[in-house]
Amino acid sequence: MTKKEVAEQLGVTPAAVGQYEMGVAKPRPDLLPRLADTLDVPLPFFIAGRPSNRLDSSMAHFRALRSTPKAQGERALAFAEQVWELTYALEKRVQFPPIDLPGFSGGEVPPGVDLPLDPAAAARELRKRWGLGDGPVTHLVRRMEAHGIVVVMPAADEAARTVDAFSSRSARPVAILTPNRTNAVYRHRFTAAHELGSRQEREADAFAAEFLTPAASITPLLPRRLDLAQLTGLRRVWGAASIRSSTAAASWA
């Protein structure tokens, strides 16, 4: 909902709603039941002292950020904030796996532990740390979750089409995979690997390519001549969006 739409339901100005959002002003007590009804949340949602974690664009990595409208980027960040709050509540009752993501600045990762700056080298190091060997990576999302990364997918809606996928590194790393990218499992896997190594867009692509199909392992399997049937077979075995050529280490369709 826009500020204007919320304001019309409450009988206040859009500027007032903006002040509520930013914490500059508080709505009158008599407005809270109407606000809860308008936003379809329980009244305790507005109780003072509820844990919150404000994020800004510097704390999240968006794929194709330039094509993401500002309003939708803010909406995605708000979704990540609510995911963080849900995670916070669950961790009081459920023991999550320790965070095992070198270079992550929070959680259980010791200070000074980091991955190599080169994305391909970082991908190889992470595969080694997670004990993935040199072959295909099975159950990628499940493995990410087993190493302390929260992976979620919001319900499909029109807005989701404008945000490819993004990750947030606050108290616990969160990767949000949008529903419109799951029509092909290979694309879905590449997006997950991309968010796992998210830095700059091109670097994250190179990380994902090496993480899913290490050059040392895949190059000997490539046909010497173009053979679509063999490439399709390799694609299925390795679960990759496309199989790289030996001369373009991070080239993907």
Rank of each mutant, 00 (worst) to 15 (best):
T138N: 09
T87A: 15
R225C: 15
L231H: 06
R169M: 12
L177T: 01
E125A: 15
V94A: 07
L39M: 11
R127L: 02
L65F: 12
E81S: 13
R63H: 13
A184N: 14
H61R: 14
H188P: 01
T219F: 15
Q19H: 14
P116Q: 00
S198E: 03
R181L: 15
E21M: 02
A241M: 10
M1E: 01
E210M: 07
G148C: 09
G112W: 00
P179D: 11
A175Y: 08
S168A: 13
A122S: 04
E158H: 13
Q72W: 12
A76P: 02
S105R: 11
F104K: 01
A146C: 04
T38I: 07
D30N: 13
Q200A: 11
M153N: 12
G135A: 11
N180R: 09
V41R: 00
T2N: 13
L77C: 07
G18E: 03
A155S: 14
A78V: 06
V83C: 01
A121M: 03
R143K: 15
D40Q: 13
D114L: 05
A89V: 07
H188W: 14
R189E: 01
R235Q: 13
S105A: 14
G135D: 15
R236P: 02
L196D: 01
P111N: 10
E158F: 14
G197F: 02
A120E: 15
P98H: 02
G18L: 10
P179W: 08
V6T: 14
R189F: 07
L115V: 02
P111W: 04
G148N: 03
T162E: 09
V24I: 13
P42M: 00
D164K: 09
S246L: 08
M153E: 15
E8D: 15
G73T: 05
V137Q: 10
F79H: 09
Y186R: 09
R127S: 06
V237H: 11
K26V: 13
L140D: 03
I99K: 00
A240R: 00
R63E: 02
L212R: 01
P42I: 03
